[in-house]
Design a protein around this nucleic acid. Structure first.
Lengths: 104, 104
DNA sequence: TTAGTAGTTCGACAGTTGTATAATCATCTG
DNA sequence: CAGATGATTATACAACTGTCGAACTACTAA
């Protein structure tokens, strides 16, 4: 699975569109927010416990977030932990302002 | 048509989700970018001329951008001009960083 | 008022997407 | 190994959405 690198301040080609898509679904954004709210790591199971959707749906959303580069997902034995990549969020926000305000 | 107010740094309830949706379609974002690239005002006609889609589609995208509060649309006789609201873009970016990075 | 241009709204359709269930893979433990 | 638990993938489907052509509204000019 392709995951863009975390070069600070720079997004890979096509990543900007991918992030915008990933952020557009309210539930998926809520998942991202929940991951961000966790200190350091967020277990997959706590996500499943927190949202009234199936495990498969959480897994799907997590995959989208990872593919967009917004989240890092790491296996720890049986378990999976997720972590936000703040640099990517900030790079997206910066590029959004630059492109959507005419670069003022 | 409801259009959120432009209180600097603050988004109306539900506006965050609406903006995320509005930004998620590549074509619609390209329209926003084109409006932003124009100096001061962007005529509706130049949007129609610039994108290989029908007038109806441009009108639809413009409506979504206006409803999200990202763009201001103003009639000038027969014509319509669009203008980006930079404060809204910046407020969205700021709230995105705050909510998606745990408020670090 | 009539004709013409600019822009919006309507109705429909194809493609996308969030969701669930079931099957599968991965990992741990006895 | 077998069994159990955690997570992903496969398949299917209902809902949503970007798009268009056509009908309609808004404005201008003759």
């Amino acid at each position: 699975m392709y995951v863009p690198t975390d070069q600070p301040g720079h997004l890979a080609p096509g990543q900007f569109e991918r992030i915008a898509k990933a952020l557009s679904d309210p539930r998926r954004f809520a998942v991202l927010e929940k991951i961000a709210a966790a200190e350091c790591e967020c277990p997959y199971q706590s996500l499943c416990a927190h949202f009234p959707v199936s495990k498969a749906t959480i897994s799907h959303h997590l995959k989208e977030l990872v593919q967009a580069g917004l989240v890092d997902s790491e296996r720890d034995g049986q378990f999976v932990n997720a972590r936000v990549r703040p640099g990517v969020v900030e790079a997206y926000a910066a590029e959004l302002i630059r492109r959507a305000t005419g670069g003022e």
